[in-house]
Design a protein around this nucleic acid. Structure first.
Lengths: 339, 339
DNA sequence: CTGAAAGCGCTTACAG
DNA sequence: CTGAAAGCGCTTACAG
């Protein structure tokens, strides 16, 4: 390996130059930077003027060595699910008037990403739909402030903040909606690998509501990985079975769009042959080729709230908070009344 | 603001502890860490053993203060276009066996994101489809290694690396394909705001090929922002105009899916009333409800190559390289032969 | 309210 | 090949 170019930081203004320009100490500039207490208005103005004049920008990694980097990590599992775009929009809104900047890490290896973020001195980490064991998350929370978006408590409340929609209720709403529209043989398409607590809550809600409605005998849960081909096979298997469901509740919109594809391919019609319902109410639901009924869990609100909670934690709060949004069903043609 | 918790780095193993454990100097550990030259096998083995035993992880921000952070920034404009997922997958593949980690910044304010990444000591930055002025990018390249994915040269070759598909050719392929399938009144739906060089190249290819094919009189370019409602209005306007096009080439799949929605909503059929073609060949093209003909520009390959070039740059290469992929058309039902 | 000094965890010349 | 010392750009107690 060659040496890094020495010109790399060439021209970068440091806190020392600001101090010289303003005729104050380095420590004084640092205080102004952090809005720390004990600075006179005169000094602050002088320093601010110099910072502006020299176009000073603090180096986050240097700050991080002693204090904060003002950087938050946001980890989500993949780039193809538009729901994460909603969450991200909310996070950005929360950070608008703050010094904090968010950096994304994307992938299902939450652990590795979280460690990389800790190595990079992120002040806190937002995790979307983590499928890691609660024990790992609890241990992680000991080392760094974290907020989980889409992670339900096991038995005991988690020692870290969580932000959720009521997934169990969301699933119940779907079942009720489908029944109200004349469907009885309601199947659910769920996730096969490493189901997160979110998946499990949705499954539970589906099962409980089916039983409450006296349709326990019709409970039918299929499972597929996120891989397109696997989803296709699962949907096909469901639709070709002896007692074909007249409605499929997919645990996420992304799977529902694939289900729509399979149903269309098979020459069946939606919703007359089979109704489809998703979860997340992403922008693609509105497309006329989908018209997908879905559950809105306010991704943007979840992201906004999560970022706020994380900053509170970084700035000192010690007891965990748990924020829950009530989901609502958004009906579209994919689940219209039968007959 | 409260003080950050002093327990924050509690328990973090430092290079000094590794040195003590291995019975060598701190400098020696640093050399092993960087695979630097001039370390005996014995010393290296001892140090590696201690690092493993103590579960040592270097602190990126401390490294960055003098050397590298082994962190690359990846900036892309939004989270809703699945094409970026392909690019990202390629970047990840390139980084697999390296020490580098990638962090994403998402948004259209490239400048602000790039500055935030420089403040955070990223070793280099990957920019996807930047719509910033070439002058800004050139100035940025002076301060930090960058690679632009989807950015064509203006007049003079850019002083930074670029990775592209041949967008002009891609657009030409679309026009040829549509003509071969019996379409003549081929319109293009392009981007209204701040068109990037990519958009312009696709427009240029479209215009040139239409003229080459003797269809110059049929050139018809509509423009819309990325906002869904605006795309809908533009498509509607096109389809309701006196000389309705019999095919619409959308500059990106995302817009094409919206076009399919509008056409479906209007009760027209695809491709008999109007053919639709997109660009990017994202996974949604395969869905039976879309069956979208599209241009494949190998997003994964672009991402892979871009990451490789960036690392080369960071490690010393000084002359700019420009990598170009030849696009290919992937025909699906949305552009089937007329009549 | 203001500042001099120490230190965060690394890397970098420079001696040996 | 190996190591002691200086230093990267900040923040943090601690004096004054």
């Amino acid at each position: 390996m060659n040496e890094p170019k020495s010109s790399k930081r060439q021209g970068r203004v440091t806190i020392r130059e600001v101090a010289e320009d303003a005729g104050v100490s380095v420590a004084a500039v640092s205080k102004v930077l952090r809005d720390a207490y004990g600075v006179s208005d005169t000094l602050r103005d002088k320093v601010r003027a110099s910072m502006g004049k020299l176009n000073y920008r603090p180096l986050a990694s240097a700050r991080g060595l002693r204090g904060r980097t003002y950087t938050l990590g946001l980890i989500f599992p993949d780039l193809r699910n538009p729901f994460f775009g909603d969450v991200f929009a909310g996070v950005n809104t929360a950070l608008e008037r703050t010094q904090y900047q968010v950096m994304q890490g994307i992938g299902t290896t939450i652990g590795a990403l979280a460690e990389a973020m800790i190595d990079r001195q992120m002040d806190g980490i937002l995790l979307v739909g983590p499928n890691e064991a609660p024990a790992y998350l609890s241990e992680l929370a000991l080392r760094k402030p974290i907020v989980a978006i889409g992670h339900h408590d096991d038995l005991t409340p988690m020692p870290f903040d969580t932000v959720n929609n009521d997934d169990q209720l969301g699933a119940r709403l779907v079942v009720r909606h489908l029944i109200a529209n004349g469907h009885r043989k309601i199947a659910m398409l769920s996730l096969l690998q490493e189901p997160s607590t979110v998946v499990r809550q949705r499954e539970l809600g589906y099962r409980l509501e089916m039983m409450d409605q006296g349709l326990g005998a019709n409970i039918n849960v299929g499972r597929a990985t996120q891989v397109a081909r696997d989803v296709q096979l699962s949907v096909k298997r469901m639709l070709e079975s002896a007692d074909r469901p007249d409605a499929i509740f997919c645990w996420t919109d992304l799977m529902a769009f694939e289900a729509i594809s399979v149903v269309t391919e098979m020459g069946l019609s939606i919703p007359d042959d089979v109704a489809i319902v998703g979860y997340d109410n992403t922008m693609y639901c509105d497309f006329a080729q989908n018209r997908l009924t879905s559950v809105d869990q306010s991704g943007e609100l979840l992201g906004l709230q999560a970022a706020r909670l994380l900053i509170e934690r970084i700035e000192g709060r010690t007891e965990a908070e748990h924020f829950v949004v009530t989901p609502r069903i958004v009906a579209r043609a994919s689940s219209r009344k039968r007959g």
